[in-house]
Amino acid sequence: MSETTATIRSWTDIANPTRFIALAGRLIPWLGGASALLLIVGLYLGFTAPEDYQQGITVRIMYIHVPFAWLAMMCYSLMALSAIGTLVWRHPLADVSLKSAAPIGAAFTMLALATGSIWGKPMWGTWWVWDARLTSVFVLFLMYLGIIALTRALDDPSRSARAAAIVTLVGFVNIPIIKFSVDWWNTLHQPASVLRLDGPTIHPSMLWPLLVCALGFTLLFFTLHLMAMRSEIWRRRVAAMRRLAARSADRQEGVTA
């Protein structure tokens, strides 16, 4: 094991999938453990933190909702970075990273929407409002689903890589426009409803649990991402072996014929 660590010196070394798998195998338990620990501490702190004087107990959902929303955005940025990695540097792992991040990002986005909705019910009296922020996150969710559908539709990884990268980047460029347009649309339609998603200025007693939770979920994300990347690499190896088997079968037939 010490040999592998000795050989991983630069970023290009990690490009080798075998070394990446070795590295991921060593990192995953640590990352997973750290995220579990942080989450336990963060959630405990969250449940013992003082209640909000206006929102009461419902404010506690913030400790998971905000990290989910943060990860929904971070994951897309990570995918956009991976897309640049695929298109510009042709990094062999960038495509794996993009493809395996998409479902995780979609899951976190959905969780953010769901927890936001649960939070919104007692606060606003309705499960869903076409608030600018909610709508943009919803559009983000749709974009995740589109990218997932695209990566699944093209089964040849070398071909799907660039297609998904291009769509991801175009989407990334569009996110500010969508955000801006949704803001415009919202203010035009319901200028009176100022929905307070942020709550009051956060008191340190609530900020600390939130930060711990955010860190914990971020580590959880990276754990999941590494695991997903590892299994994607394995999946591709299996596919390559199968293709090889198909070819060698053809060759054997050619020998006998």
């Binding site: 559009v139 974009m143 990218i147 559908a149 695209l150 569009n174 949704v182």
Partner: peptide, 25 residues
């Protein structure tokens, strides 16, 4: 992106509609 797919029509719509939201708005 979907040019190589035999039935890419639905996928094209799924990919495009979110991006077309600003135009609609």
């Amino acid at each position: 992106v979907a040019v190589a797919l035999p039935r890419g029509g639905l996928l094209v719509s799924v990919l495009i509609l979110p991006l077309a939201i600003p135009v609609l708005i």
